[in-house]
Lab assay of single mutants.
Amino acid sequence: GGHPVTTQMVETVQNLAPNLHPEQIRYSLENTGSVEETVERYLRGDEFSFPP
């Protein structure tokens, strides 16, 4: 991942996926670069990993 992630982006995802840890959200956003894509992954039931 190398996309810039803002606190705003993390908070937006958190509102839609409250049971995800912020670190999981941030890591996913760094890989996708997209709030929409991260939320899609969540709704699909994809696994969210923590940063290594």
Rank of each mutant, 00 (worst) to 15 (best):
V39L: 13
G33K: 06
P18K: 06
V39F: 08
T32W: 06
H3N: 11
E47R: 09
S28P: 03
E11T: 11
E47N: 12
A17Q: 03
F48I: 04
R41K: 13
E23I: 06
R26S: 06
P18N: 05
L20W: 03
N19A: 11
E47V: 14
P18W: 08
P22E: 10
N31H: 13
V13I: 07
I25Q: 00
N31K: 13
H3K: 12
L43C: 09
L16W: 11
N19F: 10
F48A: 01
F48V: 02
V35M: 09
Y42C: 00
T32F: 05
N19S: 12
T12V: 13
F48D: 02
M9A: 06
L16R: 11
L20Q: 02
E30L: 11
T32E: 03
N19L: 12
M9L: 05
V13F: 00
N19T: 13
G33Q: 07
V39K: 01
E36S: 12
Y42T: 02
V35S: 02
T12W: 15
E11G: 07
T6G: 03
Q14S: 11
G1R: 04
G1T: 13
G1A: 14
S28F: 06
E37N: 07
T38S: 07
P22F: 10
E36N: 10
A17G: 02
E47H: 14
V39W: 09
H3F: 14
M9D: 10
T7E: 14
T32R: 00
R41V: 06
Q24L: 04
S34N: 08
Y42W: 11
G45S: 02
T38A: 02
H21P: 03
H3I: 10
E40M: 14
T12R: 15
E36A: 12
S49H: 13
P22D: 06
R26L: 09
V10H: 03
S34L: 03
Q14W: 10
S28C: 04
E37A: 12
R44C: 05
E36I: 11
Q14E: 05
Q8C: 11
L29N: 01
V39R: 01
V35R: 00
L29P: 01
Y42R: 00
P52H: 09
Y42G: 01
P52I: 08
V5C: 05
P51D: 06
F48Y: 02
Q24D: 01
R26D: 04
F50Y: 11
D46S: 06
Y27N: 07
G33A: 06
T6Q: 05
Q8H: 12
D46P: 01
Y27R: 02
A17C: 15
D46M: 10
L29T: 01
E40Y: 12
E23F: 08
N19W: 09
R44E: 07
P52G: 09
T38Q: 00
R26K: 12
V13R: 00
H21T: 15
G45T: 00
V13H: 02
P52M: 09
R41Y: 08
E37S: 08
F48H: 02
F50I: 04
V35N: 01
T6M: 07
Y27S: 03
Y27W: 15
E47Y: 14
E11P: 00
H21Y: 07
L20G: 01
V35W: 08
S34W: 01
V10Y: 06
E23G: 07
E30P: 00
L16T: 06
Q14V: 09
R41G: 08
V35A: 06
Y27A: 06
L20E: 02
N31E: 15
G2T: 13
Y27C: 04
Q24A: 05
P51H: 06
G33H: 08
H3C: 09
G33R: 06
E47L: 12
H3D: 08
E36T: 12
R41D: 05
E30V: 08
E30H: 08
E40Q: 14
G33L: 08
F50T: 03
I25L: 00
Q8R: 08
E23Y: 07
S28H: 07
E40H: 13
V5D: 03
G2Q: 13
N15A: 15
F48E: 02
L20A: 02
D46L: 10
Y27I: 06
Q8W: 13
L43F: 11
G45N: 05
S28W: 09
G33E: 04
S28I: 04
T32G: 06
P18Y: 06
H21M: 09
F48K: 00
H21I: 04
P51T: 04
P18R: 03
A17P: 00
Q8D: 12
Q24I: 03
T6F: 07
T6A: 06
T7N: 13
P52D: 09
S34I: 02
T32Q: 02
P22V: 14
P4L: 14
A17D: 02
T7G: 09
Q14T: 07
H21K: 10
D46R: 02
S49E: 15
F48M: 09
D46Y: 10
L29G: 01
E47M: 12
V13C: 06
V10R: 03
R26N: 02
R41F: 07
V35F: 03
L29F: 01
Q14H: 11
L29M: 01
Y42S: 02
Q8V: 12
Q24G: 01
Y27T: 05
P18H: 08
G2Y: 13
F48W: 00
G2D: 11
R44N: 12
T7H: 14
E36G: 09
L43E: 09
Y27L: 10
G1I: 13
V10F: 09
V10C: 07
L16M: 12
L16N: 05
H21D: 11
T6R: 04
R41A: 15
V5M: 04
V5W: 11
Q24S: 03
